[in-house]
């Protein structure tokens, strides 16, 4: 059999949930064999929905997708044999031990008794669960559960591993440990990894390539460096001493500074780009003083993924995430 050139393809996936929520509005991605691909997006961007479709759990309203060369709609059975899935919710069985969970999982892929026991022991060691292997998983910490979930996804040596928010809810140490393990997986086995995350630093650290998702579609794709350097020049951030009374005044003042491009104002925070960030700062500060809206702090940095997100969606990543969280809270409050 010839190796399909792409581990995952998704073309124009659309999914509307009952009740009219449009979770995906034409999402397309390509994942190459052996690479770590991150789908980065705020709450509600459609990341989990995309993963559910690619892993044959849900069906799209329209669009096509292949995983390991198999069509997810036409041949879900073939897709299931080549994928490992770590969903956003831990699906392990709380009354069974870690080892029992792994052995059952291997059995479902048709592994024989000795093969599955050997593989379970190997994975328990590898994910630092050997000493807890024979305890019911309801006694595991969040980090241990998450590591067990990843081990469950790997039991049958899949070609493509899907990780839906693998580190959400973990403390910083547990997160770093899991990052190391994912990075090792990506290096060691000829495994393609598709992970979703809301953490810019996670995507930056783990992904060979990433797609930024917003409101059910991909707004930018590339390597982290490509995406950052597509924003020619430096990011200049200026915090004002107080929120301006009239935003237009500030924007007009800065428009008169030729070195600055793409100026946006969000509360007290001004973001802009400049080929030579440090060189542009004095003129910018002077212009702000002139406009009687003096600056409190200035930073000049190489662009971050947050800047990339801002550029493509017009919103800051954290704001989009908080807004989604806040509206979810409001919806919950409304439902009471």
């Amino acid at each position: 059999m010839t190796q399909h050139p792409l581990a995952v393809t998704a073309r124009d996936l659309v999914k509307t949930y009952p009740g009219g929520v449009r979770a995906l509005a034409g999402l397309s991605i390509d994942v190459r064999p052996g690479e770590v691909f991150a789908l980065l997006g705020p709450n509600g961007a459609g990341k989990s929905t995309a993963i559910k479709i690619l892993t044959t759990l849900a069906r799209p309203d329209s669009g096509t997708a292949t995983v390991g060369g198999h069509d997810v709609i036409g041949h879900p059975g073939r897709v299931r044999r080549v994928i490992g899935v770590v969903a956003q919710k831990s699906g392990s069985d709380p009354v069974a031990t870690g080892r029992e969970n792994l052995v059952l999982q291997g059995r479902l892929y048709g592994l024989s008794g000795t093969a599955v026991r050997r593989r379970a022991t190997e994975l328990l060691d590898r994910f630092g669960l050997a000493s807890a292997a024979d305890r019911p998983t309801r006694t595991y910490s969040g980090g241990m559960l998450r590591r067990l979930d990843v081990a469950l996804g790997l039991i049958h040596r899949p070609q493509v591993l899907f990780l839906d928010e693998p580190t959400t809810g973990l403390d910083p140490d547990a997160r770093t440990a899991l990052w190391d393990e994912i990075a090792r997986l990506a290096a060691g086995e000829s495994l393609a990894i598709v992970l979703t995350t809301h953490y810019l630093d996670e995507a930056d650290r783990l992904a060979h390539r990433l797609a930024i998702a917003d409101r059910g579609r991909v707004v930018a794709t590339g390597t982290p460096d490509e995406l950052k350097s597509s924003l020619r020049g430096d990011a200049v951030h200026i915090d004002l001493q107080a929120p301006p009374g009239d935003e237009a005044v500030v924007l007009r003042a800065l428009a008169a500074v030729p070195a600055l491009r793409e100026v946006t104002l969000d509360g007290r925070r001004i973001s802009a780009r400049a080929d030579d960030g440090a060189g542009a700062v004095p003129a910018a500060l002077a212009a702000l003083d002139q406009a009687a809206t003096p600056a409190a702090a200035v930073t000049v940095a190489r662009p971050s993924l947050d800047d990339v997100y801002l550029r493509h969606t017009g919103r800051r990543f954290a704001d989009a995430d908080n807004a989604a969280g806040a509206s979810a809270l409001a919806a919950m409050a409304g439902a009471r």
Binding site: R81, K89, S90, G91, P94, Q105, L108
Partner: peptide, 13 residues
Amino acid sequence: ERGTLNRFLVTPV
């Protein structure tokens, strides 16, 4: 609710 059913549904079972 725990996600166990979904875990099984994406295996060949």
